[in-house]
């Protein structure tokens, strides 16, 4: 039986190898009549598409006006030394100056630290919360409660925490001091605690987003794989790391992408809480950019900083998306 099938499919080597397991059952392999060279005599013309351009034109025009025009204006601006009276062309001098600007480089290192701390805490806490919520009977109530911080404007969140951190009547300040963790100095007045404080606000406000995304991901973790692994002999904890986490991975990448781009943009709460202080300890790059462009009105220099920030955001985003797009097979 096996021999007959091998002879009959012998011509198509690749396919016969792929379906070796089937050879035993498919005893006679049917082949289509004719060959690969059959083609229709005539192809139908494609659908006419002459209206498309006219229909799309207004949208493209508006998009160009509100997004492309300012973008190129920004590039143009970054090549000038701008003040109230107007600008004069300086070429790449703004960029060259950035390389020796210590506050600029410090802004980058603070931004990366801030972003890494936020992402790490949000991912860890977010996933743990999602697992708890997913196994709870009160899932809907919990999700509603979790959503509340996200609905708040970031500046309002900053104000709220400003009160909580206040050295005279702040509740958190009082708790920390009573427990002996912190001295009497205000949380926001010391360099290391100030950074932790703004990370804390971001974590408080945006962990629920990760929780929501992870919760959606948990819903589609295949139950049969979890069960198969349990029967194979896995403990619940190993089951989580072996099955749940790999299945959660794609949605978490989306969460990381959203959050890291937000970290590069949202500075509302930092401006409200510390304004970049004390002594530049929380002056992450977007805050420095805000200062240069809108406090000192160095618009050309600000544009140059903004463009470097944009460039890095795009590159990091691309890397993340490519990791996400990688076919399942090549991941380990």
């Amino acid at each position: 039986m096996t021999k007959i099938s091998q002879v009959s499919v012998g011509a198509q080597d690749a396919t016969s190898k792929l379906f070796r397991a089937r050879e035993h059952s498919v005893e006679v392999e049917a082949r289509p009549l004719g060959g690969d060279d059959i083609k229709p005599r005539k192809f139908n013309p494609p659908l006419p598409r002459r209206y498309y351009l006219y229909l799309l034109a207004p949208a493209i025009g508006i998009l160009a006006f509100i997004s492309l025009y300012p973008f190129f204006w920004l590039i143009f601006l970054s090549m000038q030394d701008v003040d109230i009276m107007g600008g004069n062309w300086v070429g790449l001098e703004n960029y060259a100056n950035l390389l020796t600007d210590r506050r600029f480089l410090n802004g980058w290192s603070l931004l990366l630290k801030y972003s890494a701390a936020c992402l790490f805490l949000q991912l860890t806490i977010g996933v743990i919360l999602a697992v708890i919520v997913n196994n709870s009977r009160y899932e809907k109530v919990l999700v509603t409660a979790l959503l509340m911080p996200m609905m708040m404007a970031p500046a309002v969140a900053g104000l709220l925490w400003l009160f909580l951190y206040n050295g005279t009547f702040g509740w958190y300040h009082w708790i920390m001091e009573s427990l002996g963790i912190l001295g009497s100095a205000s949380i926001l007045a010391k360099a290391d605690t100030a950074m932790a404080a703004i990370v804390m606000v971001d974590v408080w406000q945006w962990t629920p987003l990760i929780t929501l995304i992870a919760l959606a991901g948990l819903k589609r973790v295949p139950r049969d794989q979890l069960e198969a692994n349990m029967v194979d002999g896995a403990s619940p904890l190993r089951n989580f790391f072996a099955i749940t986490l790999p299945n959660l991975y794609p949605v978490l990448v989306i969460g990381v992408l959203l959050r890291f781009m937000d970290n590069f943009r949202f500075i509302d709460h930092i401006l409200v809480l510390t304004g970049g202080g004390p002594a530049s300890a929380t002056k992450i790059l977007p805050v420095y950019l805000f200062e240069v462009a809108f406090k000192f009105f160095k618009l050309g220099r600000g544009a140059a900083i903004a463009l470097t920030l944009l460039l890095v955001t795009i590159v990091l985003g691309k890397i993340l998306v490519s990791v996400f797009d990688k076919p399942k097979g090549s991941r380990s």
């Binding site: 794989q225 198969a228 692994n229 029967v231 403990s235 790999p246 399942k328 380990s332």
Partner: peptide, 20 residues
């Protein structure tokens, strides 16, 4: 006994292979 201590092996209807 939890599943891991029962010493049984199961084949699922939709195979339940680990895709990664």
């Amino acid at each position: 006994l939890p599943p891991k201590d029962r010493d049984v092996a199961m084949v699922f209807e939709n195979y339940a292979l680990y895709p990664h």
